[in-house]
Nucleic acid binder design. Sequence first.
RNA 1: GGGUCGUUAGCUCAGUCGGCAGAGCACCGGCCUUUUAAGCCGGGUGUCGCAGGUUCGAUUCCUGCACGACCCA
Length: 489
Amino acid sequence: MAEADLLASRREKLQRLRAAGVEPYPYGFARTHAAAELRRSFPDLSPHTRTGAVVSLAGRLTAIRRMGKASFADLLDQTGRVQIFLSADGLGAPAYANFLENLDIGDILGIRGEVFTTKTGELTVDAREVVLLAKSLRPLPEKWHGLKDVETRYRQRALDLIANESSRRALEKRALILRTMRNYLDGQGYLEVETPILQPIPGGATARPFVTHHNVVDRDLYLRIAPELYLKRLLVGGLEKVYEIGRNFRNEGISSEHNPEFTALEAYEAYGDYERAMELCEGLIEACALAVAGGLRLEYQGRAVNLARPWRRASLLELVAEGSGCDVEKPLAELVRELDRRGIPVPDHLRQGPKGKVIEHLLETRVQEKLWDPTFVLDFPLDISPLAKRKRGRPDLVERFELYITGREIANAFSELNDPHEQRERFLAQEELRQAGDEEAQRVDEDFLRDLELGMPPAAGIGIGVDRLVMVLVDAPSIREVLTFPLLR
RNA sequence: GGGUCGUUAGCUCAGUCGGCAGAGCACCGGCCUUUUAAGCCGGGUGUCGCAGGUUCGAUUCCUGCACGACCCA
């Protein structure tokens, strides 16, 4: 039947129900059990057991198996599926006829009836009453293969969630991971805070922002690319352990690992350095893995991942030297010549430096994909790290790490720069890059500098890409699987 | 930005070396009180992604475009 006829058929049933005095969209339904609760309440019954217990359930009708004067049906709620038995005997002939004639797969129903088990031992509710709670006017995807088309799945997320249990489970696991993060940090004495999403100067990361406009004050504002600078100002204010879990916005491409709005955890701890950030990172991710996967040996897309500590620590420069076969300590011009000689492509916009961008490019193209088990990549070039403190004994580097798992960047952290004079110099160096055409370069933020001048304690700071971490922990191939409503063009 | 593959019924997918468009599920009608991808009988519901081109004839071949997946930059 064509789609228009399928819709028309359901609308006709709706009309018939209304004509018979049935309200197809009532206000509520008192249920005694969710599906999972029912299973817990009636464990281990033998086949052919009549319990005499009357329960009420509500959910979506997902299957009907008709056998004349009786039918079995499946009712799905958030916790699972329960089989329902409907018969002329149990409901009365008119109510049973109404069920067959006017209700459809997809309708949301309330059921009251007796708990029993069938001859195969399946827990089932023998319906004495069926209440329509919401008529469904659209056909559902196929019961066996479900909804597979990824575009439809992402564009019609509600339909996907009805049809695919794995989609529901992914969101539940995501919630568990977020809850575990909060519990872990709260347990360590961190204070959860919320900082501005609308910012006059987008700071704290190297990225292009979304711009918006405040009409009353007639001024452009930016959706934050990171909460970092505000969180550090709270450190200045005397909050010693703070974190924020929230949405960041970057005006960049969409891919299996990038969504323009994404969820980040940022945490700052006074009196720590990046060694402390590594400990925190290990402990936090370990707790999440244990909560959601029950262990530290996972599988990601068919390949084993071992999250057992201690995690590998490797110098960025050594990794890049190994990955490129080049001496990356030599000056930019010589390094570029050597890369050319070896046939390693260097994008034109990076050839004039800063050198750190070339190193970063080599990390992304020649090293990153090999970092499968958790690896802390240590000590980044200063010229691409304007908010991090210099490395002790290596003034051209900073105390910064990125954490890689399954070949993707999961976290970024540093010993936070708290010298206001040096911070201003770093901002000015970024400003020069901006003048030279680098739209991602960071901007001078005078409000932040003023607060730094009040004195910020030395601190460890870390940012974790929550969506990507969830991908790894729930074995999702695309960031879209772990977002409720991924952006599609 | 480039490459490869894909887009056919509500869903999952076949198929046409260019000649009336197919299946299963869903749906509609009938039978059926222990089914669970229930079963049995009957019914095919379509702008073959969009726009051009070639051709007597295009869903099929060609070109462009849109959208998607994967890979590369």
